[in-house]
């Protein structure tokens, strides 16, 4: 209840990132590409003396890069001691939640279900609460995950 959320647009949808996890919002300048890595890793970039891994959120969800515009801003998060810059469409606002995350019958669609913790009601309307671990894991995670479960 009443947690701060960073409201963002990812692939045209409104998503909520827990404000506690977002270290800062940066303007992406040059991104150094990293060859031979999955496509959703846009590259690495520097914030102060820190190297950030840039994750293209449209690609990690499985959408086409060209379908959505981005304003080149990124939310910086830290997972497992590593810093990531999430390249998203736009950052809208910071707002508070007005309820607990809940599920919607029928799910959120194949692309979204993997990264969604559920729907969350906020002061500025409903949004999809994003699971950051799942988001940075990339689109292959579910596939390999189910393979592992089968093995």
């Amino acid at each position: 209840m009443n947690e701060l959320m960073v409201m963002t647009q990812i692939a045209g949808r409104r998503c909520a990132l827990p404000a506690h996890d977002v270290k800062s919002v940066i303007e992406l300048s040059t991104i150094t590409p990293v060859p031979q890595t999955p496509e959703f890793i846009a590259g690495i970039t520097a914030m102060r003396s820190q190297a950030l891994t840039v994750i293209d959120c449209r690609l990690t969800l499985g959408f086409e890069q060209t379908d959505w515009e981005t304003d080149n801003r990124a939310a910086v998060i830290s997972i497992g001691g590593h810093f990531y810059a999430l390249l998203i469409d736009a950052i809208e606002d910071i707002t508070t939640t007005t309820g607990e995350p809940g599920q919607v019958s029928g799910g959120f669609g194949p692309e979204w279900s993997r990264v969604a913790k559920g729907m969350i009601e906020t002061a500025s309307g409903p949004a999809l609460l994003i699971d950051l671990h799942a988001l940075i894991a990339g689109p292959d995670e579910r596939l390999t995950g189910s393979l592992n479960a089968a093995a």
Binding site: V34, Q36, T37, I41, Q50, T53, H82, I136
Partner: peptide, 13 residues
């Protein structure tokens, strides 16, 4: 500095 696991997985860097 260490790289993120997803990048390390490529085993090139």
């Amino acid at each position: 500095k260490p790289l993120a696991p997803a990048v390390m997985k490529s085993e090139i860097y």
